[in-house]
């Protein structure tokens, strides 16, 4: 069975290490915050100017002056800090943020990522994604393996305008987990019950499968 969004988030959360500063993008990445393993302390960075972001507020305690990068109302944890946008991207560019998790429309087997524009159709803008992918020490992309038309989003070459070049280190889709290796997407784990053959069939980019590929356990 392919993973659902929460399982994808849960699998990513296992990559968190104690003491990490983490930037979570909009969508599935935001869900990672719900699955942080016990005993692991991470500090969430929101690029609009928060370190130490907490949960959503309880009803009646929403504060219009306190939102995350997805414009959602949030709260602050004890010991949090607020800063301006230039300072926020200073800590991102200077690689103080240990891990960035973000979504994508396409990823290529050389680590290129496309996530911000469909020419002639959709122009929302890149927001902070270009700054994040150009500088992050470690980038995990999470997305569905195929688009709505059933076409692979793991490609030899991105067809859409790029967000960054050669920057993606790891990808988690509903079908499996992949490392961007020299010779292509290296399959490191499969979603429970998903075969290597199915993943091969749905991956347009070069896929590297070495020996047995373990299933994820939830």
């Amino acid at each position: 069975m392919a993973l659902d969004k929460n399982q994808i988030a849960k699998r990513i959360a296992r990559e968190l290490q104690d003491g990490y500063y983490v930037n979570l993008g909009i969508g599935i990445p935001t869900l990672v915050a719900n699955h942080i393993p016990p005993g692991i302390n991470v500090t969430l960075q929101s690029e609009n100017g928060i370190l130490g972001m907490g949960q959503f507020p309880v009803e009646g305690e929403e504060d219009a002056d306190l939102i995350n990068a997805g414009k959602q109302t949030v709260t602050l944890l004890p010991g949090s800090a607020i800063f301006d946008s230039a300072t926020s991207f200073a800590m991102i560019r200077a690689q103080k943020v240990n891990l960035t998790v973000l979504g994508a429309m396409e990823v290529a087997d050389n680590g290129d990522i496309a996530s911000w524009k469909i020419p002639g159709k959709m122009v929302k803008g890149m927001g902070g994604a270009m700054d994040l992918v150009a500088s992050a020490q470690n980038i995990i992309v999470c997305m569905m393996h195929t688009n709505k038309a059933g076409e692979s989003k793991l490609l030899k070459k991105c067809s859409l305008p790029l967000t960054g070049v050669g920057c993606v280190k790891r990808i988690i889709t509903d079908l499996g987990m992949f490392e961007v290796a020299k010779d292509g997407f290296k399959l490191t784990e499969r979603a429970p019950g998903v075969s290597v053959e199915e993943i091969k069939a749905k991956t347009e980019g070069r896929l590297v499968v070495e020996s047995e590929v373990p299933e994820m356990v939830f």
Binding site: S85, A86, S88, F89, V123, G125, M130, D131
Partner: peptide, 15 residues
């Protein structure tokens, strides 16, 4: 006319 600019670049250009 729109000039889309990465967010950190926009902040730094203003700074």
């Amino acid at each position: 006319e729109v000039q889309l600019t990465p967010q950190g670049t926009l902040a730094e250009r203003c700074r």
